[in-house]
Structures are given as C-alpha cells and as structure tokens.
Design a binder for these strands. Sequence first.
DNA 1: CCTACCGATCGGTAGG
DNA 2: CCTACCGATCGGTAGG
Lengths: 207, 207
Amino acid sequence: MINIEKPEETQRTAIQQRTRKAIMDKSARLFRDQGYGSTSLRDIAAATGMKAGSLYYHFSSKEELAEEVLSLGLFHVAERVKEAVEALPETATPVDKIRAAMVGHLTALLEKGDYTSANIRCYNHVPAPIKKRLKADRESYDAFWEGLIQSSVESGLIRPDVDQISLRYALIGMLNWTLEWPATKHGSPEELDSKFFDMVFGNTLAS
Amino acid sequence: MINIEKPEETQRTAIQQRTRKAIMDKSARLFRDQGYGSTSLRDIAAATGMKAGSLYYHFSSKEELAEEVLSLGLFHVAERVKEAVEALPETATPVDKIRAAMVGHLTALLEKGDYTSANIRCYNHVPAPIKKRLKADRESYDAFWEGLIQSSVESGLIRPDVDQISLRYALIGMLNWTLEWPATKHGSPEELDSKFFDMVFGNTLAS
DNA sequence: CCTACCGATCGGTAGG
DNA sequence: CCTACCGATCGGTAGG
C-alpha cells in the first residue's frame, strides 16, 4: 500500500540493539531541537552517555545515523496510517479512508514526535544523498494520499471540481503543522481529526 | 494592527546598504537550503563575493545576521497581509479580511520566498536568544489571526462551534506548507487562495 | 566502548 | 574590504 521500507535489521545482539535505539532516540530529539548542522556527534554521545568515538561502533557516519533516524520518522507515520486504514470494514468509502489516514497520521506525530518532527524539520537541511532517499519515501507516501483522493473523486464523494493537488497538500500541511502547536492545545488525534475533517470536508464533499 | 518591528535602519551609505542587502539575500537562500548550523559564514561570504572576515564590517556576528534575515521574513508576510486587509472597502466583513489575509500571506511567501522559507525552516534551530525574539513576532502575527477569526465568530459569519485555535493553525499550516510544494504547482496567490478558502470556509461559514 | 589523536573547518579578531 | 591568524570544535580514525 505505502511502499516505505524499514531500514533492515542486520543481526545484532539485544544489547547492541538497545544501545542503537538509545542513540537514535537522543539523535531524533537533538536533530528536532537543534537541527542537523548544529547537532554534533559529541552532543549525541553525551546525551546517550558515551564518548563520541564510540558512536562509530553503531553507525558508520553522522549521515548514516541521520538517515536512519529521519527515515524512521516517516516510516512510523506510514505504518500508523496503514493500520488505521486496514482496520476499516470492507464497506468503507475512500473518504472514510482519508479520515482514518488523517487519524493515523496525527497519531504517529503525537506518539513518535521526536522522529517525525526531526524528519519534517531537518529534511531540507540534510546532505544531498540522504535527502534524495528521504524524498523517495515522501513521494511514496504522497502517492498514497493521491490515490485516496482520486478514488474519492471518482466515486463521486468529493466534488470533481476540487483541485486534488491543493487538497492533498492542504491536508498534509495542516496535519504536519500540528507539530508547531503549543503542546497543550492538541487534544487526542481523534478530537483533532474531527475538527480538521469537518473543516475541510463539509464543503468538499458532494452534497 | 500587526506589531512586528522592522529592524531599525541606522545611518548607512547607499553602497553599504546595497552590500548589506546582498549579504542578507544570499544568507536567506543558504539558510533556507542548508539550515542555520550547516551554513558557514564562509559560505555566505563566498556567495556574496567577499571574504569571511569582511562580513563583520556589516554584521557583528552570525547570530545577528541570522536574526535580521529571519525576522525580515516574517516582517514581509505581516506587511503584505496588512496591505491586503487595509485595501478592503469599509464594508468588508471579518471573513473578507481572513480571505484577504490569506492572499497577502501567500503573496509574501511567493515573493520573498528565501526570507520567509528561511524563517519557517530555521526558526526551531536557531540559538535560543534569537528564537525568543522571533517567537514574540510569531505570537504577534498569530494574535492578528486570532482577532480576525474571533470577530468572524462574533459577527455570526463562522459557526460558533468551530474550534478557533484549530482553525487558525490549520489555515497557517496549509498556507506555510505551500513552501514545500514543487514550485511548478503553485499558480498565483489568488488562485491558490480561492482553492484553500473554498476548501475550508464552505462548511465553516454559517449557512 | 574508551583514549588519544588527526586534519579540516568553524566563528571571530587584529591590523592594515 | 582583505590577509593572516586565533582557539575551539568538528567528523572521523587507530589501537586497544
């Protein structure tokens, strides 16, 4: 459905995996808060409780670490969205799927905030080779939304005169911008989604 | 109306001002593309056609330069929005003002893309003292939208059950996310606004 | 996973 | 506005 691969897990011991995850958790938060260029490997090492050189036991470069962290951010979003859509009954319309996808997207942003924020905030500032691969993931995720919206139009649920590209970017934009909200104002993904959904689809749906 | 001060212009010769602007133009683009931390003063100097040390003839630090560039980004948005709203006839409703503000916001994003993108993309990654001042500007701009939306609700043009905070962030989010669009898909600010406006306010307006 | 270190580059300054 | 330079810090490596 959404074609975003999870970075392959090569054979590692449980301890190695736990340390790796700790490094990535700290990296995600630091990249999110300070940006890619302003976060040094020494920052990350200190936050994880080790020395800078030791990071190279787990990652071969800053770029590899960043790519894995940022790509995991989008992966989590895609995974939640997939779950939410697949949980729908067979009778679900394409618009039902859009709504479920919105909830899934918001759920991932709230649950895995450090990773998803790091992706959204650092995507543009990461070295070109990483950005290229992250871009492919984004396009795959975009294509999924494109399909949902197109199906909605084809089945007569969304007015045919609606600009599908604008609708897609508007939805993704308002969803992603929730990361810039004061954290206290969110409410649950379902509450937030119901507000967004009513806002947009009250008029966009054919009557 | 919107209380965002333009950085004061101390007395400078015409040539100094032109060089300053050249430095800021290049900085805006580099900050936007590479991020604050990954953009060195040597990058900026090279792009402007001078040596790194010479920048200190115009700016006393990287932080000062960044603050001026980023704050100008939001200033331009506020200025365009102000113009657009003030150009309305006296009979204009609060919702008319929202629509005009949307056009103004989009116009600024398209016209001054380097500055506005640099603000949006680097805001979170800039040193704390700068961020604090930029945050005050954002809050002032936010308050302006809050007022427009509240007036719209009070005059019965927007349904009273609409969550005003969600509406405000949703609007700003979809507007700002246009910076992430492939550039070719924009169309004019007016075209884009008409799509966004219809999308949101078809249902949000009281019937 | 640490110590100790490499060359490169950083923001910034002195002196002209 | 440039040359020449400062101490600090960067990503990364060797050897254990």
